[in-house]
Amino acid sequence: MLARRYEAETFSAVAVIAGEEAFCDRRGALFFPDHGLLAVSDLHLEKGSAYARRGVFLPPYDTAETLTKLESVVADFDPRIVVSLGDSFHDRVGSSHMPSIFRDRLEKMMRGRDWLWVTGNHDPDAPENLSGTSVTEVVLGALTFRHEPTAGQFAGEIAGHLHPGARIVRQGKSVRRPCFASDGLRMIMPAFGALTGSLNVLDRAYTGLFDWRSFRAHVLGSERVYALNRSVLFPG
């Protein structure tokens, strides 16, 4: 019942990971209703300014856009706990350089809930001047949340880092989209940040992480999430 309601309201798809039910939201967030936990990964906040520091001027709207999207999923699911799965900031100085308007928006979202910043390779330190708790991983029941997926199969692991994406080719047209990648045992989450690209799930980097027989790519469409199996995916 609960599942149907969330599906209808947020156009999410249901996935089961190590026995836990989760919703794959079309905006790239993962919600565990039994725990009231919302996970997002690879926000890469302040990516634009990180590039600007070396003279490449990407549009400076990425942080605002990512936050707007984050606000909308937080409002929709109203989670008790939010886990930001690492690479929350594009680089070490991202959190300290972030303009206060963005800082205020983040703080407002954090109010009244637990907020866990998992460290990532881009942001190995705790964010500066921000609430929430910095952790290297989170264990909750059968689930383990960490930034980089552990080599080999690992039941219950929710990770990010790889920015999974899927590609299909039909009628001579190719479509490439970010996706949740899961074989029912573990889940690798898509990057949530604006201006973050994706890496095809058929790339070598994913070798050994999944049991392909039960693999599903939960592909983010503009209206909803589409579950596709391995046989219809294309490399590249």
């Binding site: 479509v175 469409g221 209206e223 579950a227 596709l228």
Partner: peptide, 19 residues
Amino acid sequence: ERVNGGAADALLQDTEDDL
């Protein structure tokens, strides 16, 4: 000729329907 047109989502939908 390959027909161009049809939004990306329609292709995703088709792929899923085939399955």
